[in-house]
Amino acid sequence: MEYHEKTPIQDARKYKVGDVIYITGEVILARDEAHKKLLEEGSPLDLKGSVIYHCGPVVAKKNGEWKVVAAGPTTSIRMEIFEDEFIAKFHPAIIVGKGGMGPRTLKTLKEHGAVYTAYTGGCGALAAERIKGVKEVQFLEELGIPEAVWVFRVEEFGPLVVTMDSHGKSLYDDVNKNARKNLEDILKKIER
Protein backbone atom coordinates (compact mmCIF):
# COMPACT_ATOMS: atom_id res chain seq x y z
CA MET A 1 0.00 0.00 0.00
CA GLU A 2 1.07 3.57 -0.64
CA TYR A 3 -0.13 6.29 1.74
CA HIS A 4 -0.03 10.06 1.33
CA GLU A 5 -0.61 11.38 4.85
CA LYS A 6 -1.03 14.67 6.67
CA THR A 7 0.31 15.21 10.18
CA PRO A 8 -0.60 14.59 12.94
CA ILE A 9 -1.10 10.89 12.21
CA GLN A 10 -4.30 9.47 13.70
CA ASP A 11 -3.82 5.74 13.38
CA ALA A 12 -0.45 4.15 12.68
CA ARG A 13 -1.75 0.61 13.30
CA LYS A 14 -2.99 0.44 9.71
CA TYR A 15 0.57 0.63 8.32
CA LYS A 16 2.12 -2.75 7.58
CA VAL A 17 5.68 -3.75 6.80
CA GLY A 18 6.29 -3.03 3.10
CA ASP A 19 3.91 -0.05 2.91
CA VAL A 20 5.29 3.23 1.58
CA ILE A 21 4.32 6.55 3.19
CA TYR A 22 4.71 10.16 2.00
CA ILE A 23 4.24 12.86 4.64
CA THR A 24 2.86 16.36 4.22
CA GLY A 25 2.82 18.66 7.23
CA GLU A 26 5.46 18.62 9.94
CA VAL A 27 8.46 16.44 10.62
CA ILE A 28 10.31 16.80 13.92
CA LEU A 29 14.04 16.07 14.07
CA ALA A 30 15.54 14.30 17.03
CA ARG A 31 18.76 12.34 17.28
CA ASP A 32 20.98 11.27 20.19
CA GLU A 33 21.17 14.41 22.34
CA ALA A 34 17.60 15.52 21.58
CA HIS A 35 16.19 12.18 22.76
CA LYS A 36 18.13 12.52 25.99
CA LYS A 37 17.13 16.14 26.51
CA LEU A 38 13.40 15.63 25.86
CA LEU A 39 13.28 12.59 28.14
CA GLU A 40 15.01 14.49 30.93
CA GLU A 41 13.17 17.79 30.65
CA GLY A 42 9.92 16.98 28.90
CA SER A 43 8.93 18.28 25.49
CA PRO A 44 7.99 21.90 24.69
CA LEU A 45 6.17 20.50 21.61
CA ASP A 46 3.11 18.24 21.44
CA LEU A 47 4.54 15.04 19.96
CA LYS A 48 1.34 12.96 19.91
CA GLY A 49 0.86 11.52 16.42
CA SER A 50 4.07 13.20 15.25
CA VAL A 51 6.68 12.08 12.76
CA ILE A 52 10.12 11.88 14.43
CA TYR A 53 13.12 11.95 12.08
CA HIS A 54 16.59 10.69 13.06
CA CYS A 55 18.60 13.30 11.19
CA GLY A 56 21.38 15.82 11.72
CA PRO A 57 20.71 18.36 8.97
CA VAL A 58 23.01 20.75 7.16
CA VAL A 59 21.24 24.13 7.44
CA ALA A 60 22.32 27.68 6.65
CA LYS A 61 20.78 31.03 7.59
CA LYS A 62 20.08 33.22 4.56
CA ASN A 63 18.55 36.71 4.98
CA GLY A 64 17.38 35.79 8.46
CA GLU A 65 15.67 32.60 7.30
CA TRP A 66 16.78 29.02 7.75
CA LYS A 67 17.54 27.12 4.56
CA VAL A 68 17.90 23.32 4.63
CA VAL A 69 20.84 22.23 2.44
CA ALA A 70 20.92 18.47 3.12
CA ALA A 71 18.90 16.32 5.49
CA GLY A 72 19.43 12.60 4.95
CA PRO A 73 18.77 10.06 7.69
CA THR A 74 21.31 9.05 10.32
CA THR A 75 21.80 5.52 11.71
CA SER A 76 18.84 4.79 13.99
CA ILE A 77 20.24 1.99 16.11
CA ARG A 78 22.08 4.56 18.24
CA MET A 79 18.69 5.74 19.50
CA GLU A 80 17.70 2.21 20.59
CA ILE A 81 18.69 3.07 24.17
CA PHE A 82 16.07 5.88 24.30
CA GLU A 83 13.33 5.02 21.83
CA ASP A 84 11.13 2.74 23.95
CA GLU A 85 10.87 5.29 26.74
CA PHE A 86 10.49 8.10 24.20
CA ILE A 87 7.55 6.41 22.45
CA ALA A 88 5.88 5.51 25.74
CA LYS A 89 6.19 9.06 27.01
CA PHE A 90 5.44 11.19 23.93
CA HIS A 91 3.36 8.88 21.64
CA PRO A 92 4.82 9.72 18.22
CA ALA A 93 3.21 7.74 15.37
CA ILE A 94 6.08 7.37 12.89
CA ILE A 95 9.81 7.11 13.52
CA VAL A 96 11.99 7.77 10.45
CA GLY A 97 15.63 6.77 10.14
CA LYS A 98 18.16 4.49 8.53
CA GLY A 99 19.15 0.87 9.14
CA GLY A 100 16.35 -0.19 11.49
CA MET A 101 16.11 -0.58 15.27
CA GLY A 102 16.24 -3.36 17.84
CA PRO A 103 13.88 -5.61 19.78
CA ARG A 104 13.16 -3.03 22.52
CA THR A 105 11.78 -0.57 19.98
CA LEU A 106 9.88 -3.30 18.11
CA LYS A 107 8.12 -4.29 21.34
CA THR A 108 7.23 -0.68 22.16
CA LEU A 109 5.91 -0.04 18.64
CA LYS A 110 3.49 -2.90 19.25
CA GLU A 111 2.40 -1.63 22.66
CA HIS A 112 1.82 1.94 21.53
CA GLY A 113 0.70 1.50 17.91
CA ALA A 114 3.61 3.25 16.19
CA VAL A 115 5.83 2.30 13.23
CA TYR A 116 9.47 2.62 12.21
CA THR A 117 10.13 3.64 8.61
CA ALA A 118 13.34 3.73 6.56
CA TYR A 119 14.33 6.70 4.48
CA THR A 120 16.85 6.00 1.71
CA GLY A 121 20.41 6.34 3.03
CA GLY A 122 22.48 9.22 1.68
CA CYS A 123 19.55 10.97 0.00
CA GLY A 124 20.24 14.34 1.62
CA ALA A 125 19.49 16.39 -1.50
CA LEU A 126 16.14 14.67 -2.16
CA ALA A 127 15.09 15.24 1.45
CA ALA A 128 16.07 18.91 1.31
CA GLU A 129 13.94 19.38 -1.80
CA ARG A 130 10.83 18.08 0.00
CA ILE A 131 11.45 20.31 3.04
CA LYS A 132 9.62 23.56 2.40
CA GLY A 133 10.70 25.52 5.43
CA VAL A 134 11.61 25.61 9.10
CA LYS A 135 8.64 26.18 11.43
CA GLU A 136 10.72 26.40 14.59
CA VAL A 137 13.77 25.05 16.35
CA GLN A 138 14.19 24.09 20.02
CA PHE A 139 17.40 23.74 22.05
CA LEU A 140 19.52 25.25 19.23
CA GLU A 141 21.82 27.14 21.61
CA GLU A 142 22.52 24.16 23.84
CA LEU A 143 22.66 21.34 21.29
CA GLY A 144 23.93 23.01 18.10
CA ILE A 145 22.64 22.59 14.54
CA PRO A 146 22.95 18.83 14.01
CA GLU A 147 21.48 17.87 17.40
CA ALA A 148 18.77 20.52 17.87
CA VAL A 149 15.04 19.75 17.67
CA TRP A 150 14.01 21.16 14.29
CA VAL A 151 10.41 21.33 13.10
CA PHE A 152 10.42 21.15 9.31
CA ARG A 153 7.42 21.87 7.07
CA VAL A 154 7.38 19.14 4.42
CA GLU A 155 5.50 18.19 1.29
CA GLU A 156 5.37 14.59 0.09
CA PHE A 157 8.35 13.73 2.27
CA GLY A 158 9.39 10.21 1.35
CA PRO A 159 9.45 7.46 0.26
CA LEU A 160 9.29 6.21 3.85
CA VAL A 161 9.26 2.41 3.78
CA VAL A 162 7.56 0.78 6.78
CA THR A 163 10.18 -1.71 7.95
CA MET A 164 8.94 -2.31 11.55
CA ASP A 165 5.21 -2.19 12.24
CA SER A 166 2.94 -2.25 15.30
CA HIS A 167 2.10 -5.93 14.79
CA GLY A 168 5.54 -7.18 15.79
CA LYS A 169 6.86 -7.59 12.24
CA SER A 170 10.33 -6.43 11.20
CA LEU A 171 11.46 -6.45 7.58
CA TYR A 172 15.08 -6.55 8.77
CA ASP A 173 14.48 -9.91 10.48
CA ASP A 174 12.89 -11.30 7.30
CA VAL A 175 15.64 -10.04 4.98
CA ASN A 176 18.33 -11.28 7.34
CA LYS A 177 16.77 -14.73 7.67
CA ASN A 178 16.44 -15.04 3.90
CA ALA A 179 19.99 -13.75 3.28
CA ARG A 180 21.40 -16.22 5.82
CA LYS A 181 19.72 -19.08 4.00
CA ASN A 182 21.05 -17.81 0.67
CA LEU A 183 24.52 -17.46 2.19
CA GLU A 184 24.49 -21.10 3.30
CA ASP A 185 23.49 -22.23 -0.21
CA ILE A 186 26.22 -20.11 -1.79
CA LEU A 187 28.91 -21.37 0.61
CA LYS A 188 27.90 -24.96 -0.16
CA LYS A 189 28.12 -24.26 -3.86
CA ILE A 190 31.62 -22.78 -3.48
CA GLU A 191 32.75 -25.88 -1.57
CA ARG A 192 31.64 -28.22 -4.36
Binding site: G56, V58, G72, G122, C123, G124, A125, L126, A128, P159
Partner: peptide, 22 residues
Protein backbone atom coordinates in the same frame (compact mmCIF):
# COMPACT_ATOMS: atom_id res chain seq x y z
CA UNK B 1 11.54 2.55 -4.40
CA UNK B 2 15.05 2.81 -2.97
CA UNK B 3 16.78 2.86 -6.36
CA UNK B 4 14.26 5.39 -7.61
CA UNK B 5 14.90 7.64 -4.58
CA UNK B 6 18.67 7.39 -5.14
CA UNK B 7 18.31 8.32 -8.84
CA UNK B 8 16.02 11.24 -7.99
CA UNK B 9 18.45 12.38 -5.30
CA UNK B 10 21.30 12.27 -7.83
CA UNK B 11 19.26 14.36 -10.27
CA UNK B 12 18.42 17.00 -7.64
CA UNK B 13 22.02 17.18 -6.41
CA UNK B 14 23.24 17.81 -9.94
CA UNK B 15 20.50 20.34 -10.75
CA UNK B 16 21.13 22.49 -7.65
CA UNK B 17 24.87 21.73 -7.29
CA UNK B 18 24.30 20.19 -3.86
CA UNK B 19 26.38 17.42 -2.31
CA UNK B 20 24.62 14.14 -3.17
CA UNK B 21 25.05 12.94 0.44
CA UNK B 22 25.39 14.88 3.68
Amino acid sequence: TQLEAILKNVEIAEKYSLPMCQ
